[in-house]
């Protein structure tokens, strides 16, 4: 390595370190504050823990109904994610492999829905849910989000990269279209499935707006709603608040690390083809 290229490498590493710090600092602050003495944490901000108050976590967990909220969030996030994967797989297959009238305009219309924010749809959806008596039920949290243009687009692009011969070989082997989709194409679509799983699960887990509008009872609160309520209750108790935030953040971070490899593969696949 020449001196010049070494200098260049050092510069790149320094830059990467700087950017990493910017992104890591809030997380670090959260972790440190969650472990500090509540009284000291209320008095002032520090990036260095003066003591390790693990008790904060126990108190935060007990202070509000977190177990129930975790279950609610899990049901919503897993329900929506599973639903979106199934609907996106099937619609993506149809757009990629089947010929039908109006396919192109329909696909364009579908993509156009990506620019419509959920906030615009919330009133009509709310009215429908009221009419179905679904407010304050899991249905209200899951059903309106079951189909997603991004997921369909992702699978359409993915299925287009799979050679036709694979499907034809399966047809000749005696498979039906349904079998071809589930036994041949879906196992090959693992990277795309992981990508959609992570995107959707994290988005749903972090969603505050939908549960805020479609639920009002304590028993239907999700973690994000619970956190907002918690924040109201423990406005100045930063240590407890941050301990609660850690609870809520951990599943997303954990999932990302678990699926990181497939996730990046999925983004690359979706992006290149």
């Amino acid at each position: 390595m020449t001196t010049e290229s070494k200098q260049k490498a050092y510069f790149h590493y320094a830059l990467a370190l700087f950017v990493t710090l910017i992104f890591a600092l809030p997380l670090l602050a959260m972790l440190v504050t969650s472990l500090r003495d509540p009284a000291k944490a209320a008095a002032g901000f520090s990036l260095w823990p003066d003591s390790f108050h693990w008790q904060n976590y126990i108190e935060a967990w007990r202070a509000t109904n977190f177990p129930r909220q975790f279950i609610n969030s899990l049901v919503m996030a897993l329900g929506v994610t599973a639903g979106q994967i199934i609907t996106s797989l099937m619609a993506g297959y149809a757009f990629a492999r089947m010929e039908f009238t109006g396919k192109k305009p329909l696909f364009v219309a579908l993509l156009a829905t990506l620019v419509i924010p959920f906030q615009i749809l919330v009133i009509p959806v709310f009215i429908i849910l009221v009419k179905l008596s679904w407010i304050n039920t899991y249905w209200a949290l899951i059903i309106p989000s079951l189909a997603n243009a991004f997921g369909i687009f992702l699978f359409t692009q993915f299925f287009q990269t799979i050679p036709y011969e694979l499907e034809e070989a399966a047809y000749i082997d005696g498979a039906s279209r349904w079998t071809v989709l589930w036994k041949i194409l879906v196992p090959l679509a693992k990277p795309a499935i992981t990508t959609l799983f992570l995107f959707t699960f994290i988005a749903e887990w972090n969603d505050l707006f939908k549960p805020l509008v479609f639920t009002s009872t304590k028993s239907m609160r999700t973690v994000q709603l619970g956190l907002t309520v918690f924040q109201e209750q423990f406005k100045v108790d930063y240590a407890l608040l941050m301990a609660a935030v850690v609870f809520v953040t951990v599943p997303s971070i954990l999932l990302f690390f678990l699926g990181q490899k497939q996730f990046i593969k999925g983004i690359a696949t979706g992006g290149l083809k």
């Binding site: 694979l166 034809e168 070989a169 047809y171 000749i172 082997d173 005696g174 039906s176």
Partner: peptide, 20 residues
């Protein structure tokens, strides 16, 4: 008659083996 019911076997140029 559908391909699956013709009782034929087809060997493709690119093999078309199921990768998984």
């Amino acid at each position: 008659v559908h391909a699956k019911d013709r009782d034929i076997a087809f060997v493709f140029q690119n093999y078309a083996l199921y990768p998984h």
